[in-house]
């Protein structure tokens, strides 16, 4: 009897494991494993302290905001490599405009910078049908160069305290403002992706473009829109950098595109499009922040951090390919 029931149990477990969709759930498993690992080894270094946890959230907010938009881009079977540079450009545009024209124009200018670049990306991809990889690769250099050029490579300080409070520097009670920004991005992203027609159109276009077109979806328009959104989100991320660090610099966001894309893919969104997992993306981005934070606490040099981070990403993606 008992062996039988044990057998049944093990076969039920086996069934559960074989049904478990590794690709979409690996991020939660990886997140928990790495969290426990760091908690055990780095508990004495303050890893588990409230301050440190809030720090992780603060540091990943910009990545999370860009990653939510990137989830739409990748679900649409496109890519946006320019987000990091656009964030840098937007940070300096915002800072310079605030200095010269005040708070509201500054906020609008930062968003507009992202929107313009997103629209150019989207237009070139959707109308001229140039692969997004190439368009945004070019834009990566263009935006970074532009940001450096208009500032003469100099940092642009922000002294407007309202701006700093709203965009990243401030706390609302015990809650960091950046945490609220993250929640808003994820919340809106999740609803739009899963509960609106637009979200369906984005995913259908990425899953089977021909089918989507035959169904009456204007696929060029959805592709244009996801790149536009990604540009605006990158603009917002740049403004959050500027708020948190109280200055605009062309270096802000540099290299973030890789972290953002890794977060989205780790989160279970297929690089080939068709499905976007917003909650997975959030955890992917927190996972990246977790690793950064843990490696710093462990006292690794930044060169060593890069090596370990690269290895962990490869391992997680390799695991997620297991069916």
């Amino acid at each position: 009897m008992s062996t039988q029931s044990a057998e049944r149990e093990s076969s039920a477990l086996h069934k559960f494991l074989s049904r478990l969709d590794w690709r979409s759930n690996i991020i939660y498993i990886a997140f928990i494993i790495v969290f426990i690992l760091f908690a055990v080894t780095l508990g004495d270094n303050g890893f588990l302290s409230v301050g440190n946890t809030l720090n992780i959230i603060r540091q990943t907010a910009t990545i999370s905001v860009m990653a939510v938009a990137m989830t739409f881009v990748i679900a649409n079977a496109q890519i946006d490599l320019s987000v990091g540079s656009v964030a840098g450009l937007s940070s300096v545009v915002t800072a310079m405009t605030i200095m010269n024209y005040g708070l509201i124009p500054g906020i609008l200018a930062g968003l507009l910078a992202g929107a313009i670049i997103g629209a150019i990306n989207g237009g070139l991809v959707a109308v001229l049908r140039i692969p997004s990889f190439l368009v945004t690769l070019g834009m990566l250099g263009l935006a970074a160069g532009l940001a450096q050029w208009i500032t003469n490579s100099a940092p642009q300080p922000i002294t407007n305290q309202t701006y700093v409070l709203l965009f990243g520097g401030g706390d609302f009670g015990p809650i960091p403002g950046l945490f609220i920004w993250t929640c808003m991005a994820v919340g809106i992203g999740w609803i739009v992706m899963n509960r609106t027609r637009y979200g369906r159109q984005v995913q259908a276009t990425g899953g089977n473009r021909t089918a989507a077109e035959y169904t009456g979806i204007r696929t060029a328009r959805t592709t244009f829109s996801v790149l536009l959104i990604s540009g605006i989100a990158a603009g917002l991320a740049g403004m959050l950098y500027a708020g948190r660090l109280q200055s605009g610099r062309f270096q802000w966001g540099q290299g973030d595109e890789l972290t953002v894309i890794a977060a989205v893919i780790l989160g279970g969104t297929s690089l080939f499009g068709g499905r976007g997992a917003i909650i997975g993306t959030l955890f992917g981005s927190l996972f990246m922040g977790l690793i950064n934070n843990g490696l710093i606490l462990a006292g690794l040099e930044s060169s060593q951090q890069q090596v370990v981070r690269g290895a962990i990403i490869i391992a997680a993606v390799a695991l997620s390919r297991k069916k």
């Binding site: 899953g207 089977n208 089918a211 989507a212 169904t215 499905r275």
Partner: peptide, 9 residues
Amino acid sequence: QEFSLVPSM
């Protein structure tokens, strides 16, 4: 003939 469905949905 060439199926027009979105496999991921």
